[in-house]
Structures are given as C-alpha cells and as structure tokens.
C-alpha cells in the first residue's frame, strides 16, 4: 500500500507562444512534485487552466516535459510517447473527458476494444471475441453492443467503452481526466461506482482529475489542489476536508453550494472568492495566489513559498500557514 507507483519530481511543462517577435512561455505546469502510492485514488483538483490536464498528458507522454522527472515503477519515463516502450504503454492508460471524440466513429466497439488486445498480445486471435464479451461485461454492457458504433450508443455507454478500452491491456495505473464531467448526473454516479468497483477488484491506482471537490470527498484517498501550474496543498481526504489550510483551498471549499444548515456547518467560514485565475503566461511574482488571497502579507508578493509539512501527510505551500 505504501509503495510509490508514480513519482513526479519538479515537473515543468512550458509551451512557447510567439508574441510580437518575442517568445513567451505558457507555464502550464510549473514545478510539481507529486507521489502516488500503489492502490490509491489521488484526486487532482483545480480550476480550468490550472494545469491539471497538462500534468496528465505529460505523464502519458503527449507532451515532452520541459524539466523534471516522472518515475513510474522505478523508471524515468519523462519522454514523448513515441519513444516509450510498449510495456510502459500497457501499464499506463488514460480515460479522456469526452467519450465522443476519444472513440473512432468509423469503427465498431469490437474493433475499438480489439486494438489494445492485439497490440499487447493479451489474448490469441481465437479467444478475441470471448475476451471482448468479457470486457463489455466488466463495464456492464451487453455482448451485442460489439457491432454497434460509438455513435449508436449513449454518452454514458460510450464512456463505459473508453473505460473498457483502458482496462483491456490490464494496466496498473489509470489516469481519469474528468471522466464524468461531459455526462448526465444520473450516469455520473453509475460510472463512478463502477470505477471504484474496478479499482477494488483489479487493484488499480487512479489519478482522478476533476474540478468537483464533493466527488473527491467520497472517492479519493488523497486530494491535491492545483493553482496556476503548482500544487498548493496535498492531504489525506479526511484531513483535507476537516482542516484545510491553504487560503485557496478554503475558498474552494466554501464555495461548494449546499442545501442544508447541517452541511453549511461542515464548511469553513465563508471566504469570498475574488478575481480570476491569472494568465499562465504572466505568472505574478512571489506566491502565484497572492492577488486573490484574503490573508495576503508583504512577503507573499516577493517570495514564492515552498511546500512544507504542516501535519503528518498534510503538505501546504503558503507563507501564512507556515507561520501559524
């Protein structure tokens, strides 16, 4: 349980943008350290543009990291996907947000599920059909869906197919990039339950990317908050919701809409959310959050805080919290 499966060290992913002749950089991921242990569900939460998907795509090899290391099962994999060995692609899979564009509309579900089975030689040709039926069964889809195309099934079912495809190569680690945010609320619950069941049965490790904090409360073992390409706070889920330290976390938690007095009391005192996330091209000096921070101090605009352990397993990157 305690062995690290993925260890991200000082990861930076910059994208060059040309503006009036000079080259600027979008600092999508700007020095992230994150360790994910075997069998855990790591929730990665942040606003749009905070760089959470970029971390996922860099880990998957879709982007070449600018700096830093990605250690997966003891091996540094900080390269583009074309240079990665096949065995690595087998162990590391991703489920994208939009099942409409992540499945080829010109193939039927059988062809879609056949690809990972064939590439990684999971089963022989004669057992292919049996395995595909089995995979469909795992995601609670009937066997006759095999010859339907993704266009012919519903959005939730399409996402089930993407999940089945990710599972086909028996991976150890799956990145879920907002797997439910494009779906109906009624289907979301079904997919989440299924993902959790699969995680338990197949001893998977998830990196669950979302902007839904209340969802994380129910399923994540640990939660990390991202802001402008940097991680602000990481803690075990219980500690995270009971004792949020970073002003940004408090702001996010206090902005979850609730319907009862009872729930209201569980939330931290109301912190008014002001402003918007700044552009990752012009990251403010010092702490990137200081422009919106209610507990701003002089030092915040001058020095970038470093990650420190505030309580066992509870890391936070904030001047105000460290003083306390």
């Amino acid at each position: 349980m305690s062995e690290a499966i993925l260890d991200i060290k000082g990861l930076k992913t910059y994208f060059p943008v040309k503006k009036k002749g000079e080259t600027l950089f979008v600092k999508a991921v700007d020095g992230v350290d994150l360790t994910i242990k075997k069998g855990e569900v790591m929730g990665l939460v942040g606003e749009s543009g905070s760089g959470k998907s970029t971390i996922a795509y860099t880990v998957m090899g879709m982007y070449q990291p600018t700096a830093g290391e990605i250690i997966f099962q003891g091996q540094n994999i900080a390269t583009a996907s074309s240079k990665r060995p096949l065995s690595l692609k087998k162990d590391l899979q991703i489920v994208f947000q939009d099942p409409g564009s992540s499945l080829n509309g010109q193939q039927n579900i059988r062809q879609i599920l056949e690809l990972p089975l064939r590439v990684h030689k999971i089963v022989s040709k004669s057992e292919m059909e049996k395995k595909i039926v089995e995979l469909l069964k795992t995601v609670e889809l009937p066997a006759y869906y095999m010859y339907k195309t993704p266009w012919a099934v519903g959005g939730g079912e399409r996402q089930m197919v993407s999940i089945a495809r990710a599972l086909a190569s028996n991976p150890k680690f799956i990145i879920l990039d907002e797997p439910t945010s494009a779906l109906d609320v009624s289907i979301q619950a079904k997919i989440i339950n299924m993902l959790m069941k699969l995680q338990h049965e197949q001893e998977l490790t998830y990196l669950f990317i979302t902007h839904d904090l209340s969802l994380m409360r129910n399923i994540a073992t640990r939660v990390a908050i991202m802001y402008l390409g940097k991680v602000c706070e990481i803690a075990d889920t219980g500690e995270f919701f009971k004792n949020p330290l970073h002003p940004y976390t408090q702001m996010l938690l206090s902005s979850i809409p609730v319907i009862s007095e009872e729930e209201e009391r569980l939330k931290p005192a109301k912190v008014v959310s002001t402003g918007e996330i700044p552009s990752p091209v012009n990251v403010p000096p010092g702490c990137s959050f200081h422009l919106r921070c209610p507990q701003r101090m002089d030092i915040c605009s001058k020095m970038d805080p470093v990650m420190q352990e505030a309580a066992p397993g509870h890391y936070v990157r904030c001047h105000a919290c460290q003083k306390a």
Binding site: M60, G61, M62, S81, S82, L86, K89, K90, Q93, I94, F96, D98, S101, S102, L103, N104, G105, L115, P116, V119, H120, R165, S169
Partner: peptide, 17 residues
C-alpha cells in the same frame, strides 16, 4: 490531434494502424 488518434498512439498502436 483528435483524441481517438492520440488514444490509439497511447495504447501503443503502430504508425500503420
């Protein structure tokens, strides 16, 4: 740049595929 092509690459499909 579509996700289904990127996805196939991440699964390990060949260029030909």
């Amino acid at each position: 740049n579509e996700y289904f092509v990127i996805g196939a690459d991440l699964i390990g499909a060949s260029r030909f595929h």
